[in-house]
């Protein structure tokens, strides 16, 4: 009996080891980690890339832009996903934009305000304007929805309006875009800022929110694409070294015309490289 047991144990060990080896031996696996905004798009890009290159696997992991940067630096990931422009401390990485994402101001659909000037927006977010009456709305206190520290939407917003996060007098701090949309759709006096694509998608389908015109330019995907809408951020793939081999193939593929439909299906704006 005893020898049977040890043979059994050895077999299990062997199976486990071969499993381990076979997985690590395959060099045809691309690991992408990073921004949760890009992750759904990256999964779709990966699925199409896999169908074009049999034997290749594209594994996408989420966790935020900062994880993408860390994992890429450490070599845990082949490609990082980073939304927003790389900061000065991140210039050691190579960035390749695959799409643009506009950032728009949203309010509840019942709010009579349809446009705000940059001055008014700065006033509202720094707490100088606290009532909707002051910008042409009802007599109601403004509920300010801000993004959490480290979110790249926050960084684009602050950079555009030349604000510091400590100056913003927020009532609610949120993480993802959908959370912002849900909060604003449930509070008639709230104001927040989220990805234009996501907001336009939900507004079209009857969620009670609306995108405000900013400095005379309507917050639409079309205006982000033609460059007239001022507040947008790039969605990047980043690598530690100049890309070669499979990594280069994937990045080129992600920036090519054959993926524009996938980018648009996630409500982002494709960037033309050629």
């Amino acid at each position: 009996m005893r020898w049977m047991k040890s043979i059994g144990a050895a077999t299990i060990m062997l199976v486990l080891m071969s499993l381990t080896l076979s997985t690590f031996a395959s060099s045809h696996k691309l690991v992408l980690t990073g921004s949760s905004t890009i992750a759904p798009l990256a999964i779709e890009l990966g699925r199409r890339f896999e169908s074009l290159h049999p034997g290749v696997r594209v594994d996408v992991q989420t966790g935020g832009s900062s994880r993408g940067i860390n994992d890429t630096r450490k070599g845990v990931a082949d490609i990082g996903m980073v939304s927003g422009v790389l900061k000065s401390a991140e210039q050691d990485l190579q960035a390749f934009a695959i799409a643009l994402d506009g950032v728009g101001i949203i309010v509840h659909a019942s709010n009579p305000v349809t446009t705000l000037t940059n001055r008014q927006i700065v006033g509202i977010f720094t707490g100088r304007i606290t009532n909707w009456q002051e910008v042409g709305g009802h007599d109601a206190r403004i509920t300010l929805v801000n993004k959490a520290e480290g979110r790249s939407t926050l960084e684009s917003f602050l950079a555009y309006f030349q604000l510091k996060n400590s100056e913003i007098k927020s009532h609610i701090v949120i993480g993802d875009n959908q959370q912002g949309i849900k909060i604003v759709s449930g509070n008639p006096h709230a104001i927040g800022y989220v990805s234009i694509g996501a907001a336009a998608y939900d507004a079209q389908r009857g969620v009670p929110i609306k995108l405000l015109t900013m400095d005379g330019v309507a917050a639409t995907v079309a205006n982000v694409r033609n460059g007239t809408y001022p507040l947008s951020r790039p969605l990047n793939l980043v690598t530690r070294l100049p890309p070669t081999g499979l990594v280069k193939q994937f990045i080129d593929f992600a920036r090519s015309k054959q993926t524009h439909d996938l980018v648009e299906a996630q409500y982002f704006v494709p960037v033309s490289v050629d």
């Binding site: 989420t62 875009n177 949309i181 694509g197 998608y201």
Partner: peptide, 10 residues
């Protein structure tokens, strides 16, 4: 979590 927080129309 991903569908409700990260995917429009999820």
């Amino acid at each position: 979590f991903d569908l409700s927080m990260n995917v429009p129309g999820g």
